[in-house]
């Protein structure tokens, strides 16, 4: 990943100096070694701020929406999962391909910060990718952690190690083997009785704060006015209660159905660790089973099962 960082900086500097883009949206170091943050590099000299390390999980494509109505071009750093969002945004008519320059990263997988904290027994660590795994260092200790055991959840079932769309690729191409079953947890929940399932989700939604981080982080949530922000009519009660929390999450899942690219951001940002991805993955599983549809965003253009009608559709009526 160190090499990716160096190439990334060189590329960004080139693009900015040459006036090919006005802004590079990428990752930079955070306020402490265990954090990374989005950086918005608007001058060649600032290209030094760009990094790529095993903590660079955020899907930065969401920020494109802030700049797409302004003149000029932006460059965005995208991993495989993030790149699906680009295709999906184009399919949704939300993005002009000309508008973005995609700095694609061939990503070998990211580390799960919670698991790293458990391994170190503390929070103040730093991590680097090495060929054999993740090198974790903290005051007074270090460990080399086997990659497979410390990958982020989303990376364990990664479908696209290499971006599906890009203007330039940084890092060595990674062999895409067979993807482990993404729907194992969905199947487990499906195997519960209705009562067990209700209890499972009720307990999870009981701790939802309605902070809307999941919606705000989601690149599929592109509505200029979100239904949950409208007080008239109040589609889902803003009062926090088991029913309204459930309704919020299900309505949002349905609104992004067929457009969710399974980037895992909703899950990552939730402050109370509700496994929101499983709701979206349930829908993705249905799409795969009923329509044979690949994950949205895998290519563009792509068939959109929820936006097209074909006489071969599984439902007899419409």
């Amino acid at each position: 990943m160190k090499e990716i960082t160096l190439n990334l900086r060189a590329r960004a500097m080139e693009l900015l100096a040459g006036g090919r883009v006005d802004l590079v949206i990428g990752y930079g170091t955070g306020s402490l070694p265990e954090f990374v943050r989005p950086v918005f590099v608007d001058r060649p000299e600032r290209a030094e701020e760009l990094i790529f390390n095993p903590l660079c999980a955020q899907n930065l494509t969401k920020y494109i929406l802030d700049y797409r109505d302004q003149p000029g071009r932006v460059a965005v750093v995208v991993k495989g999962c993030d790149s699906r969002s680009i295709n999906q945004m184009m399919a949704d008519g939300q993005l002009d391909r000309e508008k973005v320059f995609l700095l694609g990263i061939n990503c070998p997988g990211l580390a799960d910060p919670v698991l790293l904290s458990v391994a170190a027994g503390r929070r103040d660590w730093q991590v680097e990718a090495e060929p054999e795994g993740f090198r974790l260092r903290w005051p007074g200790g270090e460990r080399l952690l086997p990659r497979d055991e410390f990958l982020m959840y989303r990376c364990r079932t990664c479908e696209h190690h290499n971006p599906v769309v890009s203007d330039v690729l940084l890092g060595d191409p990674i062999l895409q083997g067979e993807t482990p079953d993404r729907f194992a947890e969905v199947r487990r929940i499906e195997s519960l009785t209705p009562e067990e399932r209700a209890a499972y989700w009720d307990a999870l939604f009981a701790r939802c704060l309605r902070c809307y981080a999941c919606r705000n982080a989601c690149p599929a949530c592109t509505c200029r006015e979100c239904i949950f922000d409208r007080p008239e009519p109040e589609w889902v009660a803003r009062v926090v209660a088991p029913q309204s929390n459930l309704a919020y999450h299900l309505v949002r899942a349905m609104h992004v159905a067929g457009r969710c690219v399974d980037c895992g951001e909703c899950d990552r940002v939730c402050p109370v660790a509700i496994p929101l991805r499983e709701i979206n993955r349930k829908i993705l599983k249905e799409l795969a089973v009923l329509f044979g549809a690949p994950t949205p965003g895998t290519s563009h253009p792509a068939p959109e099962p929820l936006a097209t009608f074909a006489v071969t559709d599984p439902e007899v009526w419409l």
Binding site: R37, P38, V39, F40, K62, Y63, D66, L209, R210, C211, Y212, A213, R215, N216, A217, E234, A237, R238, V239, V269, P271
Partner: peptide
């Protein structure tokens, strides 16, 4: 630029007190 505009910081904070009044 990087703020998502979510409510996480306000909702985890022990001193944030802003509220809304909503009729149902």
């Amino acid at each position: 630029r990087r703020c998502l505009g979510c409510g996480i910081c306000t909702y985890v904070c022990p001193t944030c007190h802003c509220f809304n009044v909503i009729d149902r």
